[in-house]
Design a protein around this nucleic acid. Sequence first.
RNA 1: GCUCCGGUGGUGUAGUCUGGACAAACAUAACGGCCUUUCGAGCCGUUGAUCCCGGGUUCAAAUCCCGGCCGGAGCACCA
Length: 520
Amino acid sequence: MNSWSPERQRGALLERWPQLLEERPRAEERRELPPLPNVDRFREVRTRFAPNPDGPLHLGNARPVVLCHEYARRYDGSFILRYEDTSPDVKAPILEMYDAIMEDLRWLGAEPDEVYHQSDRLELYYRYARRLIDLGAAYVCTCPPERFRELYMRGEACPCRGLSPPVHLDRWEGMLGGRYRKGEAVVRIKTDLRHPNPAVRDWPALRVATAPHPRVGTRYRVWPLYNFSCAIDDHEMEVSHIIRGKEHEVNTVRQRYLYSHLEWEYPEVLSVGRLSLEAGVLSKSRIRAGIEAGIYRGWDDPRLGTLMALRRRGIQPEAVRMLMIEIGPKGVEAKISWDNIAALNRRVVEPRANRYFFVDEPTPLWIEGLETELRARLPLHPDHPERGVRTLEVEPSGGVARLLIARRDAERLRPGSRVRLMGLLNLEVSEVNDVIEASPLPGGHVEAREMGLPFIHWLPEGVGVEAEVVIRRLQGEGPRRAPMPEGGGGLRRPVRALRLREDRRPQPPRRLLRPSITLL
RNA sequence: GCUCCGGUGGUGUAGUCUGGACAAACAUAACGGCCUUUCGAGCCGUUGAUCCCGGGUUCAAAUCCCGGCCGGAGCACCA
């Protein structure tokens, strides 16, 4: 049948199963999250986001955040924020980041319903550690790490493993009391020494860490490792669905052992792929190194992929949410392109943003033969006339009006070129030197359109607000200056960011205060 | 090295589990048209993919099986 011609196939179908040939309705798709698995296992859908406060949130974190929050909202459940600040030695928490993370969440529209700090919960972890040791499900290992590694790689138990719970309880008290120094003892959870993945075998749960903690100082010298505190908290907090990065897949396997020791039921797990940015840095450690080396100006440096930086570049939180929902909860990695963020963001911003001119690298343009004052009245938003207009006045002196246009526009002009200054008038260029000289042409925008003239942005000389283009097109060209509107907040294109220079801000008449952005 | 994932237009993804209406969807980009917001606004349209390669199963394969090749992640007393 497949060797038949398409026509013959179609004919046969038409004859026998005409319904098969009906037009499929084109799904007007607004991408939505798939339903969460096994929701009825739980009395409430509870999701959690559990960052280490050693840096602000970045786009990669936004994936679990948005998914967790979105699902919690959709099932009328709860969204939990849990600071995982249990590594004063290796990934020391930074005090300011607790608030910074909260601010990032609020910005994203993901206000948590409950907030916890693991550094407040040490006693809880200690209780469970003791219980597990008592149960014989955990033990205090005093082997040097290299020695232990050697053994477990071969699937063999270390000498500590077989000792009785009372011995280990004593060792445990020793850990707390200071008998062991950093690195000398670690609590391990018993798993399967012949597990195919060596990383799963008798994994470490608590260790001695003596660096002062920014929140609780030196009150504790034994700190839980990620898998221990995370596993216990997920149970204690009645988390129903864990949405975590794929890099935690092994950890899920590890934690299941703990759950079975304690006879708990493990939550549902969704492993999402990691996000990367087509250009722009997401790694916290790389960012910090860059800041320290003076490459970046701070956590919100626009070249970075932090939420702070995106915010500063005018990316709207709705755009980030849309992006994350579009990417969804799948296990696949996703490389985010700025074009996509920009497109989403434009959709969000387009109706909100009023329009202004942007004169990039201002270049003088003189209009000669102008006797009367001209006034351009441009709508703040072409689709929303009710928002009013902005007015730019051009006052010639001695028949000459001095304006500024962007260098990129200026470079395309030759003697004889014709352009339209948007909202003002049509011009013909007479001379191109340091200054471009031009004279008015009759006709308005209709004629300009008919003649196919380029419409360009412009400003009267001395008007406008100066701004710095911090980056452009991701390449981080050196900062440049250009007149910009105050507030620069209408920015939509992520490939650029602008910063107003306080010291250079001119004081134009009030009505001209925000004369220059388009950038849209 | 070991263990997992992936390879679909220029780019990012959907579809693959449960083979058939997929001569392949969406977004972005590029190009063209429209528009008193050119170059980075908006709207409309066009272009663009022999679904990594080879073999197999089947009436039928992007989808299932086998073998390659390429890419990514994990393998801490970090989270």
